[in-house]
Design a protein around this nucleic acid. Structure first.
Lengths: 264, 264
DNA sequence: ATCAAAATGTGGCCATAGCAACATTATTCT
DNA sequence: AGAATAATGTTGCTATGGCCACATTTTGAT
C-alpha cells in the first residue's frame, strides 16, 4: 500500500529547486524572484543564486527582479514556428478575423496562424461560438469573454498544445458549424496537406462539418506538398494568405471557386 | 507642420511604439522598461504607461522592471487563490503524488490543489494515464512526457481554466479509471461540497467512474458547508490534507472507511 | 494660427531588487 | 559523532523601478 514514500516533508534541495524553476519557466515566460522565494520558502538571496547559476549555464535569461527563458526557444514546436514569419502570420490572422461575423459558429484548427486569428478575434470582441481542438485558442477566446468556446476531447499532444485522435474526430463529426478555419503545412493544386500526424484527419472533418471552409496559409507554403493530404481544393471556400499564389495554383483555385484574400 | 508625412526621423508615435513593443515581445520573452525607453528615446514613464495600457488589454504580462508575453490563459483567476496557502497546497499535492503508482489510470479534477499534485507528478515523471477537464493540468502532465493525457470535452470556463457541462459529464461517464483525484471547497460530515457551478457534477461522476476516490483539501475547509454537495463521504477512499480534521469529522470519516493522509 | 486634449517629461518619494560580507544551518564524509 | 564543506540566511547598503502630481510638449480640429 504505502510502498513509496520519497522525500516527505523536507524542503526542496538545491537541485530539485532549480529543476523546478526551469520547469515553471516552461509554463510561464517570466518568474519573479520574490514569488519564487515565497513559493519555495527560501530567501530571495537563494533564488538569486539559483538564477545566477542557471544563467551561467545559459538556461535562463536574467532580468531585474526575475528571469525568463532564453531566446533559443525551449518551447517545443509551436514557438519556433511562431517566431518564423510572425508578422506574416499576424497579418493573415488579422484579415481572417475581420471576416468573422458576429454570432457565427466556427470550428478553429490548432496552429500558429489560426492562433493569431484567435488573438485578433478576442481583441475585437466579436461574439461567436467556437469549437476547437487547440488549448491556447480556447484560452485566448474564452478569456476574452465575448466568445463561447467548446473544447473537443482527445489525446493531448504537447508539441502542438492540442488534442487529437479518435475521440476528437468523433466529437467534431457530431457538430455542425457555419465556418471552419484551418491552417496547413502546404497548399498545391492537389489540395491542402499537413505533416503533423493526426491533424490531417481533423482538418478534413472540420471542413466536412462546416458550410464554408477558410484556409489560412503563408505564401511560402504555396506549391509545396506536405506529408498527408488533408483536403482537396474543392473543400475550401476561401484562402487567406500574405502573398498571391503562383499562376497555376491561382488557376486551380479559381476552377474550384475558392476566393483568395490577400493580407496587406 | 508635416501634414501626412509618416515619421521619418521623427520619433515613433504611441500606436506605432506599442505595436513595436508587442512585436519585440514575440522575439524575446521579456522586455525591460529601461531598455525600451532608451531604444525609443522616451522616458521610462512613457513605456510604463504603454505597459499599463497593454496589460489592461491582456496583451502583455507586467513584471517588475519589464513585461513578458502573456501565457495564453494559464493562470487567470487561479493565480489569486494559488497564492493563498501555496505551501499548504504544495505539501498536499506532493504527498498525493507520491501515492500514485506507475501505470495507474486517473481522473484528475480541475483545481489549484489538484494542479499542485499534477506538478509533482510531472516532476517525478510517474508514467500514468490521466483523464482531466483542466487545461493547465493537461498541459503540465502532457508536457512532462511521462503521462498520457486525455482531455475531456466541454464548454470552456475561463475563470477555472477548465471545461464543464453536459459534454464533459457524458465523456467522463464513458470512461473508467482506477483512481479519481478531486478537490473541493468544503468537507463536512455531510460530505464533499463545491461552490463552482457545474463542478459538483463533474466530481460526482469522476468518483463514480473510479475504483478509489482521493480528495485533496485544505484543513481550513474542514467542517464548512459549500453550495452544492458533490459526494457523500462514502464515495471517498482517502483524504489528503495539511492538518487533521476535527474529532467529529474524523469519526465520520472512519465510519466510512476513509483513510486520512496528513501532509507534514 | 489657435486652442483644447492628449501624450510625454520631470522631480520627489517610496518600494523593491541587487550586492557583498559575514553568520548560521545542513549535508557529507570518515 | 564531529569536522569539513556546502548551502542558505542576515544585515546594511546602493541602485533601480514604481508611482504620483504637475509641467511641458505634441497632436488634431477648427
Amino acid at each position: 500500500m504505502d510502498a513509496r514514500v520519497k522525500n516527505e516533508g523536507t524542503r526542496l534541495r538545491k537541485r530539485d529547486r532549480r529543476e523546478q524553476i526551469l520547469f515553471e519557466l516552461k509554463l510561464r515566460p517570466h518568474l519573479r524572484i520574490s514569488e519564487l522565494a515565497e513559493q519555495f520558502a527560501v530567501s530571495t538571496e537563494t533564488i538569486r543564486r539559483d538564477f545566477d547559476a542557471l544563467a551561467e549555464k545559459g538556461l535562463i535569461d536574467r532580468a531585474h527582479g526575475g528571469a525568463s527563458r532564453p531566446h533559443p526557444g525551449q518551447y517545443p514546436t509551436l514557438n519556433e514556428r511562431e517566431r518564423n514569419q510572425f508578422q506574416e502570420r499576424e497579418r493573415i490572422g488579422r484579415l481572417a478575423a475581420e471576416w468573422i461575423a458576429p454570432g457565427e459558429t466556427l470550428m478553429i484548427d490548432a496552429g500558429s496562424t489560426t492562433q493569431q486569428m484567435a488573438r485578433f478575434l478576442a481583441m475585437a470582441g466579436t461574439p461567436c461560438r467556437v469549437l476547437t481542438n487547440s488549448l491556447p485558442i480556447a484560452m485566448l477566446l474564452g478569456g476574452s469573454g465575448a466568445a463561447e468556446v467548446i473544447l473537443a476531447p482527445g489525446r493531448y499532444l504537447p508539441t502542438e498544445s492540442a488534442v487529437v485522435g479518435e475521440e476528437t474526430l468523433e466529437f467534431l463529426a457530431r457538430h455542425h458549424v457555419e465556418r471552419a478555419v484551418i491552417g496547413a503545412t502546404a497548399l498545391s493544386r492537389d489540395g491542402v496537406s499537413e505533416s503533423v500526424p493526426g491533424f490531417a484527419a481533423i482538418k478534413r472533418v472540420m471542413l466536412a462539418q462546416a458550410k464554408t471552409g477558410m484556409l489560412l496559409i503563408l505564401g511560402s507554403k504555396f506549391g509545396v506538398h506536405g506529408f498527408t493530404r488533408a483536403a482537396t481544393l474543392g473543400a475550401l471556400t476561401s484562402v487567406v494568405a500574405d502573398s498571391a499564389p503562383p499562376a497555376d495554383l491561382e488557376e486551380a483555385l479559381r476552377d474550384n471557386d475558392v476566393e483568395v484574400l490577400l493580407a496587406k
